[in-house]
């Protein structure tokens, strides 16, 4: 089976109103080229589930988002995401704001075919007050109350990985897979952009198969986009682009997202985007962050 496809093929399988899970964490290993393809499309009314960064901010700024399911939206070295902030402060998006671990539990519930996962997280806080869809239930086994974290079923998961074969075996070589494999498991369809396409035998070498975190039956499509996580990081290939992210952040104060998108995204191919940010070699030369 050959699952290789183009970014346009991916977007053609996404419909208005769908729930989209986006992999990565804050400014790390986001499928940004696929996000840019959505930004160029007519898609709207999306529900986004993410450990959010500029992916969520850009989609909000472009009016693609109806609702965000989140624990945080942050650029990390710039703590607050400027366009997510604008969207919240203008009251233009619905939210389901939950703890980072609850988000994981919701994805696991969806992946395991369960309606909810019981957890104590959220008790005693406004999380159980402001989220009307979140129920607190009694336990059949003890006298405590528990939060029933509902399954976060995804229509589509969008992920970025280091490499894959065309059959959908995807490898993450960075130090953390974040919740990407949970997203793949929670989704009806999973599309993965990758730095590199390799032959299947690649995974038979050494311990390469140890860095494959979900089985290929969960991968619907593979998109070859080297540098496709830019301006987020794809450790060990490249770090996050701090100057570019600062420019993006500054655009919220002056010029607005429209100006940023006109300069880098609207009417431009991914190849043109990469040229505008210095070229693929420059992306691959961005140093890794040291914490």
């Amino acid at each position: 089976m050959n699952k290789q496809m183009s970014p346009a093929d991916v977007v053609s399988q996404i419909k208005d109103g769908m729930t989209i899970g986006i992999g990565g964490w804050g400014p790390r290993r986001k499928p940004m080229a696929l996000i840019r393809e959505i930004l160029r499309s007519d898609l709207k009314d999306l529900t986004i589930v993410a450990y959010g960064g500029a992916d969520v901010g850009m989609l909000c700024a472009a009016g693609k988002v109806k609702k965000v399911v989140f624990a945080f939206v942050s650029l990390d070295f710039i703590p607050l995401e400027p366009y997510f902030r604008k969207a919240r402060q203008s009251g233009s998006i619905e939210t389901f704001e939950i703890d980072e671990g609850m988000l994981l539990l919701g994805l696991r519930a969806a992946g395991w075919g369960m309606p909810f996962m019981p957890t104590q997280i959220g008790l005693g806080t406004d999380v159980i007050k402001v989220n009307k869809e979140l129920k607190v239930i009694d336990s059949p086994y003890d006298d405590k109350e528990w939060v029933a974290m509902p399954a976060l079923k995804l229509d589509v998961a969008l992920l970025h990985a280091d490499r894959a074969d065309v059959r959908g075996v995807c490898q993450i070589k960075g130090p953390d897979m974040y919740m990407d494999e949970q997203m793949a498991r929670a989704a009806n369809k999973t599309f993965v952009s990758v730095e590199e396409i390799v032959e299947t035998d690649f995974f038979a070498q050494g311990d390469e198969s140890r860095y494959v975190f979900w089985e290929r039956s969960l991968t619907t499509g593979v998109v070859h986009i080297p540098g496709g996580a830019h301006p987020t990081s794809c450790t060990p290939a490249y770090g996050f682009d701090v100057p570019h992210t600062k420019e993006y952040n500054a655009s919220a104060k002056e010029g607005g997202f429209e100006a940023y998108a006109d300069k880098y995204i609207n009417g431009k191919t991914e190849a043109q985007y990469q040229e505008l940010v210095g070229g693929l070699d420059a992306i691959k030369a961005i140093p890794l962050p040291v914490y």
Binding site: A71, L80, S90, D99, E100, G101, M102, V127
Partner: peptide, 18 residues
């Protein structure tokens, strides 16, 4: 529609009860 949106609750609900 908050006046100032900050990070989100992050891991605080879980940390605090765990």
């Amino acid at each position: 529609q908050p006046k100032i949106q900050m990070l989100g609750v992050r891991g605080l609900p879980g940390n605090s009860i765990s």
